[in-house]
Design a protein around this nucleic acid. Structure first.
Lengths: 229, 229
DNA sequence: GTAATAGTGTCTTTTAGACACTATAGC
DNA sequence: GCTATAGTGTCTAAAAGACACTATTAC
């Protein structure tokens, strides 16, 4: 199925991109696994990341958020740019660079649109365009920032128990953390604070609830070398 | 001086970007300061980052390297993508998204082209377009990766003494490191290895030379939490 | 009571910073 | 010899991991 390729020429007479696209990698944790959101492509059984074309005069970030909402009904609390994917041939329709975004949503997020579904983020099925590459970049970014920033702010509800946070961290890092050490280390980052509330869920002692001190991207204590004398 | 804005419409009848640009932030260390390379703009006394338009069928990374060479005569050993800058109005000529790259060159690099000159990367003069924002993103990226990757591979010659490396790290981190501790920590990253050579420069004991074990982007030991039992 | 989850305290290991000391060059 | 730079060894401080112990809930 070879369609006619789109093309564009600018007013100076040079070939121009046929469009500017955005793609969004929405990640969350389900059943202790990192999963990504995909949508069905029109007229094909292949799946793809949600995304769409940037309108003239529109900021690409706004396009990404708008398309995410249109295609999945979701609003992501945390979004950051992953980078541009613009190699020739990435889109069979023509010269269409794409700006990819990473969005995170809480584990219990329900997707209103039935055609959207979650796939394993680390062993994805075949995806359209270069979306497998984009997804891999998103996973790598998330893994890398896990302990150095409050990225997970988007993956946890407004108030959360340390055990909830731990399960999210464990799914992303693919590791098991000692509950005591995890709590101590997370608190010592300065990124979270107690809400004062408690929550009882099933058997067991009620858990103290915490919130992130900021819902904007921030770096934690991180590891910065001290200054020598 | 308001020129006519470029425009483009694709074969589907929708407005399209007038062009796709790349910009390169070339950073190095001179006189213990982090500096960035700028070029004179045609027909203006404002300065800008080197860059240019991506040709149809060209990979943006290749465009960046080609433009860097054309405008400054430089070939950078280390280049990575910074991200896309595509907000409307960033380029007065029209809708022109840009993909920015970070390139690093050794401290003693001479720029063949006389119109190119180095400016303070942390307190830049006014630059064209959104290039001050791009430069700030580059500095932040470099600072963030300093101790977690071999980014500095691009900023050191093929063989270097630990004291040379230390001066580069100090300029980037804006800190002073204890020479003994610095050497121990850099060696423990596993990113460098001794060449076996020695070098005498002026008075003082000759320095053992080292090289990076890889000249491709790589992450060092980094800090990854261990797995709980 | 038992099972389950939450949280505290503390010992040990690892890593980073400081700094005294030795080594080798030019003069 | 003196000064300058390079490199080693080791003490100390801080962070991370392990794990025993206590606390509070449902049943």
């Amino acid at each position: 199925m070879e369609r006619v390729r789109w093309s564009a020429t600018n007013s100076e007479g040079y070939e121009a991109p046929a469009a500017l696209a955005t793609d969004v990698v929405v990640l969350t944790v389900r059943d202790e696994r990192l999963v990504a959101l995909t949508v069905a492509r029109d007229g094909g059984d292949e799946r793809a990341l949600p995304g769409g074309f940037v309108g003239a005069g529109e900021r690409p970030l706004e396009t990404a958020l708008r398309k995410l909402h249109e295609k999945t009904g979701l609003d992501a609390p945390y979004v950051e740019q992953l980078g541009a994917f613009a190699d020739p041939g990435r889109d069979p329709r023509g010269w269409i660079p794409s700006i990819a975004y990473l969005a995170l949503v809480p584990p219990d997020t329900r997707v209103p649109d039935a055609s959207a579904c979650w796939i394993d983020a680390r062993n994805p099925q075949a995806l359209a365009f270069d979306h497998e590459e984009v997804l891999a970049a998103a996973v790598e970014r998330l893994e890398g920032k896990l302990w150095w920033s409050n990225v997970t702010v988007g993956m946890l509800p407004g108030a959360f128990a340390l055990s909830e946070a731990r399960r999210v961290y464990e799914a992303i890092a693919q590791a098991r953390y000692d509950p005591a050490t995890f709590g101590r280390d997370l608190k010592s980052t300065g990124l979270i604070e107690p809400t004062g509330e408690q929550r009882t869920a099933g058997p067991g002692r009620p858990a103290a609830m915490y919130r992130f001190t900021s819902d904007r991207p921030a770096w934690g204590a991180g590891r910065r070398k001290r200054i020598a004398a």
